[in-house]
Design a protein around this nucleic acid. Structure first.
Lengths: 396, 396
DNA sequence: GTGAATTGTTGTTTACTACAACTTATCTCA
DNA sequence: TGAGATAAGTTGTAGTAAACAACAATTCAC
């Protein structure tokens, strides 16, 4: 590559300008899953003729395609709709304790295939890599010749070092200092990007779910293994210096509470736990699909009491998050969504009592919208990132 | 103004490119207080000849000036040093309960004059505006003819709505819904920008103080009226949707603590308080300059006990902040700096016990460096922002 | 004092977007 | 049904900004 000039530099030259403009257009098309060329003109502020040239370049590169728009009943020449191209695909991977899920995802965040490979026992790194790689092979073999995998994105339940994708610690998988990205790359020979699962989740909800159009949001997910979170500010992910930001599960809500695996006392995730809800509901671990219904129905006094107890601890964590980050939206996933849904007013009121009035004015609390696809969509977003930030490097 | 194209748009045209490059150069010169042209070439990645043209344009606009560099003992033609221009000045304002401080600040964050106007009693809005405006008049009358005030920046102890600069609530001044920016603008006929004092403080420490070169930092300031904070992530201020982010003083550290003026229980600032330290040190409110020395010396058992107690609550707040934001640096101002300085290892150890190991690896805890100037430097930064982001609009 | 190294300067070239004029497609209303 | 209005795609030209290359200036090393 002869050109030294990359986006890390502060200056902008003509080539960088075109890269930026193509990137802006492709991102808009990706995030909206298709919009009119005239809308692109308005949103970018670029001249009509320039948008025409740039869109044509994206069409040439097969990154987008144009189609007639639905009749709009308005005067003037109809503007074609620009859709995300169907040939650029990403592989999304989500390793868990009992399975690895691999998805094939298109631009626009559309999950086209999903394959879940179950494990009989907690997988070690090599069997996880083996399984993942063989599922990826299976997916890539089935591709049409004109379809291209631009990369692999992994949503990892653990702490991941950005840059090299080293998994510092994945407590529930029992992994420590595992170069997962490198290992997977060596097997599938595709670019591999990794991030924490909650980080990936917040990006997905921000782009395609409950956080659309929201610039400042927090995502909190409650799973079997604890509570994870991600932060979006100014429409960008807040990762912190090592990518470990968003660990709301380890914030203090009860200084007299029990000891967390992290060593601290009274973490949010030692007090707000799915297993306690399951126990209060009289369900076993395998019945966790029934938990949401049980919570909403408030089946027993024990369950209602536990729900109320956990909601009050959750409110403390929310108070801290709100006072620190002043978000516009907090989105709840997993069983936390049920803790909200069972009585949204109660949770909101509990938070209201603890926060500065103004901070709550424009805040919405809501459930995640992407369901089972959230981590696949988010992981695919990691894989698409190089394409979106520099479309000039890709021609399908 | 005939050109509709402004930076809010996503697209980039030639004019925007030049604006961005001039802005990048001027920011570098401002933040470094002077660096060599060859360094600018390296940092921006632009061509030598381009930097030459752009710097000349900034010189023409009197925003920077060039001077011979000190001999460097290295081969090659010496590169001149580009210094921030001396003619562009900002007015910085910091209203407090007993006085308003007004400063005259140059590019590079250099405070040239500081005038403190004391109030006999808590000022109402109009007397505060009157006093501020008259001090500003006093400063502007004394200017040389070639010096220009580019704007006024205000560091406000309270919640400020970005955009229109409405002061939603300044509890200690007793102000509520005060259009301070508008009122001051009407009097001095200069652009007025306002932000919360801690927000302004973190920007100042980030640019010129303990946070230089740090991309992810938190600033926590302990004053008579409580604890405020500001957040920098990816080198940008995190304000939240209404600019109220960073209110670490109202995060929960003690669910069984006392009731805060915000209505919640056990806020950091109900437990970590300057007045309790003064009382434990046997000092009156007017002796607060002696407090820092007393804390460091550990004058009495009462004081040492209170310091230890407050440090343990501070550690809980830090734990939460670290787990949420994963900062590289936390900078302490006011009496919090003394709570750190009296035993940095103890505080760090208390935090270590509560946080994920990896999050602490690269974290530094340190005291603020800018001293009394911090709010003036930060407020001036608000006023300089339009100049820095679009130097093409200014010619002095 | 000569050569190597680094950087400023100048004239030319290249690339990208804006602009203006024209064309196309749709709706409205007589 | 057709003229006019409106909106937007298309095309050729122009303008602007940065890169590039060659040269000049300055310093150090030997």
């Amino acid at each position: 590559m002869s050109n030294q000039k990359r986006s890390g530099d502060l200056g902008t030259n003509a080539e960088a300008q075109r890269r930026r403009n193509l990137s802006a257009l492709l991102r808009l098309v990706h995030e909206s899953r298709g919009l009119q060329r005239s809308t692109l003109t308005r949103l970018t502020g670029l001249n009509r003729s320039t948008v025409s040239l740039l869109v044509n370049e994206l069409v040439d590169r097969r990154l987008v395609y144009e189609a007639q728009s639905d009749p709009t009943n308005s005067v003037g020449r109809p503007s074609p709709t620009v859709h995300p191209g169907r040939n650029a695909l990403a592989i999304a991977v989500n390793p868990e304790v009992d399975a690895v899920t691999v998805g094939l995802v298109g631009l626009g965040g559309i999950v086209q295939h999903r394959i879940r490979h179950s494990f009989a026992a907690l997988p070690d790194v090599h069997s996880a890599i083996d399984a993942t790689a063989s599922v990826i092979d299976q997916l890539t073999v089935a591709l049409n010749p004109d379809e291209t995998i631009v990369g692999v994105g992994v949503a990892m339940p653990g702490l991941v070092r950005p840059g090299d994708g080293l998994v510092r610690l994945a407590p529930h998988l029992g992994w420590r200092e595992v170069p997962f990205a490198q290992l997977l790359h060596d097997r599938v020979m595709l670019p591999v990007a990794i991030a924490n699962d909650a980080t990936v989740g917040v990006t997905a909800e921000h782009m395609f779910g409950a956080g659309r159009g929201v610039d400042e949001m927090i995502y909190l997910n409650g799973g079997a293994s604890g509570i994870g979170g991600g932060i979006i500010s100014a429409s960008r992910n807040i990762g912190g210096i090592d990518g470990y930001a968003g660990e709301f599960g380890h914030t203090s809500v009860n200084p007299t509470g029990s000891i967390c695996e992290c060593g601290a006392v009274g973490c949010l995730q030692t007090e707000v736990r799915r297993d306690r809800l399951l126990a209060a509901a009289g369900l076993t671990d395998s019945q966790n699909e029934d938990l949401d219904v049980a919570i909403i129905e408030g089946r027993s006094i024990e369950l209602r009491t536990e729900v109320a107890r956990q909601a009050s601890f959750l409110a403390i964590a929310l108070r801290n998050a709100i006072n620190i980050l002043n978000p516009q939206s907090i989105v709840f996933g997993g069983f936390l969504a049920s803790l909200l849904a069972v009585d949204p007013k109660r949770l909101r009121e509990a938070v209201r009592r603890q926060t500065i009035e103004s901070s709550l004015d424009r805040l919405t609390l809501s459930g995640a919208q992407l369901g089972a696809d959230i981590l696949l969509v988010g992981a695919a977003g990691l894989a698409f990132e190089p394409l979106l930030s520099d479309p000039t490097a890709f021609r399908l």
